[in-house]
């Protein structure tokens, strides 16, 4: 895998719940059906109120986002247990969410699916960074660098190899916990 990603960031505040990440009306899409997976991605973060987030995460007519890194405040991914949420972000092209903290089920779904890296940041980056700032996330040393400033992120620890493997099933196969060949995704 690539060990760094450089991209403009998209900045959101506290309590971005799963309805804002992928509104309930789009949950009719089934993530394991390939074309519906892509479509889910095209709706990522469409539930953010326009007044608070005038710059759209995905431009009208596009199916993916130019922002591969999302910066968030507290409790990112709270609300429902819908796995559609990390999947929509991953399908849209997001590689990592860097937040003050995550809601439990969202964090777990990120790991189980391997769709995005959910990094905790000791510094409240949503107060410091602005949408469009270009950042480099270094997965080897767990840092986010923006305009010469280096922010240390909390290492992902034991869940890291699961996300690296592409989710819990791939990890379980690679480590011999379950038998069999990985299916083609």
């Amino acid at each position: 895998m690539a060990h760094t990603v450089t991209s403009p960031v998209y900045v959101v505040r506290d309590n971005i719940d799963t309805d804002q990440i992928i509104p309930a009306q789009y949950l009719t899409l089934v993530p394991t059906i390939a074309e519906e997976y892509v479509k889910l991605g095209s709706y990522a973060l469409i539930g953010l109120p326009d007044a608070l987030y005038p710059k759209r995460f995905i431009s009208e007519g596009d199916i993916s986002t130019p922002y591969k890194i999302v910066i968030a405040g507290r409790n990112f991914g709270c609300g429902s247990s819908r796995e559609h949420a990390p999947i929509a972000l991953g399908a849209a092209g997001v590689e990592a969410v860097v937040a003050d903290g995550f809601a439990r089920i969202f964090f777990r779904n990120c790991v189980a699916t391997g769709e995005v890296y959910p990094y905790d940041s000791p510094v409240r980056l949503c107060d410091v960074l602005h949408t469009g700032d270009v950042a480099t996330l270094d997965f080897d040393v767990d840092t986010l660098t923006v305009g010469g400033t280096v922010y240390s992120l909390k290492p992902l620890g034991e869940v890291r190899p699961v996300i690296d493997a592409g989710g819990i099933f791939n990890f379980a196969r690679q480590s011999g916990m379950i038998a069999g060949e990985a299916p083609s995704h």
Binding site: N15, D17, D19, Q20, P23, A24, G47, L48, P49, D50, A51, C78, G79, S80
Partner: peptide, 12 residues
């Protein structure tokens, strides 16, 4: 039980 923006439909 939940009232985040957009929860019951319209996001405003």
């Amino acid at each position: 039980n939940r009232n985040f923006p957009g929860r019951m439909g319209n996001k405003e």
